[in-house]
Amino acid sequence: MSIITAKDLCLWYGATQALKNINIEIPERSITALIGPSGCGKSTFLKTLNRMNDLIPSVRIEGTVTYGGQDIFAPSVDVNDLRKEIGMVFQKPNPFPMSIYDNIAYGPRTHGIKNKIQLDDIVEEALQGAAIWDEVKDRLKKSALGLSGGQQQRLCIARAMAVKPKVLLMDEPTSALDPISTSKIEDLTQQLKKDYTIIMVTHNMQQAVRISDNTAFFLLGELVEFGDTEQMFSQPQDKRTEDYITGRFG
């Protein structure tokens, strides 16, 4: 079952076209990797899905993206509700300059949960879910900025999970991390895909192979190829895909 579908999606930054006729159906409760060289549009596509591109003044979008059958650009859609459903983890760990607890509780509080006991539960559940509970449970009131980079990124994943989204967008979540932290996050994604749909931009093709079920290859704003990860990396259908994954460019 696909949870997100893009149909003839085009996007321009001013006069520059960054996405060209993207058609894709992203299956539920799986990991989809978006790969391609820098500037190919994969991050742009990711940020279109939770409408973070709305924040850039010169953006123009054509075509449709549906989430659970609903057009996300429809005027009736509340962008804040959409972002609650489709969470995001950024390239650089970006915890708020607050305590660990307040970081996780930020989202739920924003959406109206005030009850202390309920918040405590959500915080613990989210931190457990992001496999960081044991490391921080004794220092919940301490600043999140005191954590290591890898811990901060798992905290950010926990923070995104605390608003109970269905989809997690991850924009190169491990590119700023050391190998051990990276493998912890990769392991975590395998746990998370049981409950969440994960769409992850990655520059690291080994990572795409290790963790993803499906892979989408972007080049110059086009979606060149999309399909089962194993198949794409063993028998790419498109010459350009083959050139890229065998390291001939990019």
Partner: peptide, 27 residues
Amino acid sequence: VPKEYEDASLALGATPTETWFRVSVPA
């Protein structure tokens, strides 16, 4: 205030006003 803080808040579904007063101003 780093834009990353504000992006994180917006991505959690907070409105711009909530973001300014609960993230930017405290920071």
